[in-house]
Amino acid sequence: MAPAFAVFKREIASYFATPLAYVFLVIFLVLATSLTFYMGSFFERGQADLQAFFNFLPWLYLFLVPALSMRLWADERKSGTIELLLTLPLAVGHAVVGKFLASWAFCAVGLLLAFPLVIAVSVLGTPDYGVIIASALGALLLSGAFLAIGSAMSALTRNQVIAFVLTATVCFLITASGTSLVTGAFANWAPTAVVEFVSGFSALTHFANLQRGIIDARDVLYFGSLIIGFLLITALIVDLKKAE
């Protein structure tokens, strides 16, 4: 795994070598907190929890995560560095995992920087820390799943904008399949089993489960298999399309 760690280190350094990291973190924190306080009615709800924060997170991730993942492979292809990278003695899998973990760690840093909200609720009341931890885990898994999808989409093209749009679309589809908009469209005519299946496919449903404070193996498995599945797809695409 040493080569994967080398790739991880390089990626992290490259985030902070450009304004990308700072812009991303600032925008993420500003949006996340303003959504929490203004649209989430943090104070008006009068409850010492972070529901207001976590409820908006999937929709925030929907366009911020693709912005983070779009360069993962598209940039390597465009600048030709993929040839440098993949002729070094490392497996494609190492490069895929190293890059993914770097972007995931970066997302985790963003989430971690929102911790003043935890302080705020513990000053205002006595929050259920279990719920907060489970929700944070859910957010982390959600961002991981989005990043894995983004990594695969980025490997498909040398154009970062295309990678962004593809990722946002796929992430939207797996998020929205749990909203009443989609389940409602099925509910009128389809058997309950189908509605359950469509909704069970949704990242939102599984995220909501974790938000209730229950860490269920099925929810973790759902995100875990999304991450692993899309990383395998990434490795496959990189290997097949590296020369184009």
Binding site: K9, R10, S14, A17, G80, E83, L84
Partner: peptide, 21 residues
Amino acid sequence: APAYGDMTPFGLLSFVADVRG
């Protein structure tokens, strides 16, 4: 001669040294 533009020559060589063990 493709190279990571945001890295310095030293950074690039360190990275390659890491990958090559």
